[in-house]
Amino acid sequence: MRTKMILKFPKAVTNEPITYELIKKYDLRINILKADINFKLEGHLIFDVDGNSKDIAGALEYLENLGVEADLITSTINIDSNKCVSCGLCTSACAVKALHLNREDWSLNYTELKCVGCNLCISTCPTRAITNTVW
């Protein structure tokens, strides 16, 4: 299965090579979408993860035992359909085309799987319809 994984680090996590373990031990194909960690290892990491579901479950358990808060997420953004006017300006910010306009009815479509969580769309949206659901 392919999914996104968010890791939230508390202050007191051991200096464990987490990404290495996830790849080596759990055979996960990992793409780091976003990393925001300071020198005390506080912060968060977002992975795009591809692997079998058993290994992903094992990885989540491993992270939990380390004291890292780990969750599977499908998306880092939420679009409020009451606020969105389908102007389409957010598509200018979306290099991976997760946000795209349906060229038939010109409504805004969002493909979660393509989203890499860059969140550039959030500040681009003129009606502030897009919010961050993760942190």
Binding site: V85, C87, G88, C90, T91, S92, W106, P126
Partner: peptide, 13 residues
């Protein structure tokens, strides 16, 4: 180069 509108064609329709 990708293009993106500022005006909503959906609303205009």
């Amino acid at each position: 180069v990708r293009t993106a509108p500022l005006a909503s064609l959906k609303k205009a329709r």
